[in-house]
Design a protein around this nucleic acid. Structure first.
Lengths: 149, 149
DNA sequence: ATGGGTGCAAAGCGTTTGCAACCGG
DNA sequence: CCGGTTGCAAACGCTTTGCACCCAT
C-alpha cells in the first residue's frame, strides 16, 4: 500500500470520527490533519503551524491545537511530553514503543524491548498494580553530537 | 543514625552550599528546607507551601520555589514531573530508582531493577548514544483503587 | 552599609477558552 | 438557517522575575 493511500485511509477514519459526532469538515482543519499525517517524524505544534501557514498564513495556533486534540481523541495521534520540556505529536503507533532522545540535536529514536515490557508488568504486579501505560525515555548524546562538542 | 541526625547533616550540607557562594541564611528559607527534609514522601510545591505557612502564614509561594531551586542546584533534591501533569520534589536519592504511580489515588512506589538499567544502556549504545539519564514511570491502578472504583 | 532575601504582583510560556464573525451541511 | 469553526485576544496554571523593602553579615 502506498504512503498516499495509507494517509487517505487515516483521513477517512478521521472524517468518520467527525461525522459520527456531528462535527464538521473545514479547510483549516483539513490542512492541519493532512500536514500532520504526511509527516512521519515527531511534530511540535510550532513546526506544524509553520507547515500549515505555508499554505494558508491566516491559520492560527488555536486551530492547530484544536485539530490535534481532536486527532488525539480520535486515537489517530498521541501527544508526547518530554523531560526536556518540549512536546510533540506522533501518529498513533501501530506497535508500542519507547524513545531514545539526543539532548544535543534533539534526534528521537524509537525502540521496543519486549523483555523490559515484561519486567515492567512483573514489577507492577509485585506491588499489586495493574498497568495502564508507561513512559520510558532514555536521554543521552548521539555519536555525532559527542564528536561536535 | 537517627532521622533527626540525618536531617541535620543534610541541613549542614545546604548551609555549606550557601556560604560557599555568598548566599545567606534566612528564616523563611530555613523553614522551607526543614519541612522538605523532614518529609519522606514526594512533595508538591502546594503541599510544601501549606506546611510552611502553618508556621509562618506570610511566606509566599515564590520563596518556596526559590528555596527548592536552590536545593536542586545543591543536589539535595530532585524535581520529578509526572505524566499526570503534577510535579513533586524528592530528596536526592542515594540510589537511583524509578516510579510506579497509581492513577487512582496518586500513590507513588519507588523501585529499581538492575536488569532494566543494563538493557537501557545496551539499547542506547546500539544506536550510538551514551546515556545521561532516563525516565521510566509505570502508571496503573493499585489494588485498593481497583476495589473501590 | 552592602547586597542577598522576601512578598507581592506582573510577566513568561505553552495551552485553552470566550467571543463575534464566519461558513458548512 | 443552525450550530460547529475560526482567528484573535484574553485567560489559564505553573513557574520565574522585577521591584521596593527587609534583614544578615
Amino acid at each position: 500500500m502506498s504512503l498516499d493511500r495509507s494517509i487517505e485511509k487515516l483521513e477517512e477514519r478521521f472524517e468518520k470520527y467527525l461525522s459520527e459526532r456531528g462535527l464538521r469538515h473545514s479547510r483549516p482543519r483539513e490542512l492541519v490533519v493532512r500536514e500532520f499525517l504526511k509527516t512521519s517524524e515527531h511534530l511540535s505544534i510550532e513546526d506544524l503551524l509553520k507547515k500549515v501557514q505555508r499554505q494558508d498564513p491566516k491559520i492560527g495556533i488555536a486551530t492547530v491545537y484544536r485539530a490535534m486534540n481532536l486527532l488525539v481523541e480520535a486515537s489517530l495521534a498521541v501527544k508526547r511530553e518530554f523531560a526536556t520540556g518540549s512536546s510533540a505529536y506522533e501518529k498513533m503507533p501501530t506497535r508500542h514503543h519507547d524513545h531514545l532522545l539526543c539532548t544535543g540535536c534533539g534526534r528521537i529514536v524509537e525502540f521496543h524491548r519486549e523483555a523490559i515490557e515484561r519486567m515492567q508488568d512483573e514489577i507492577a504486579s509485585r506491588y499489586g498494580f495493574i498497568l495502564d501505560f508507561h513512559k520510558m525515555e532514555l536521554y543521552g548524546r548521539c555519536k555525532a553530537c559527542r564528536k561536535s562538542g
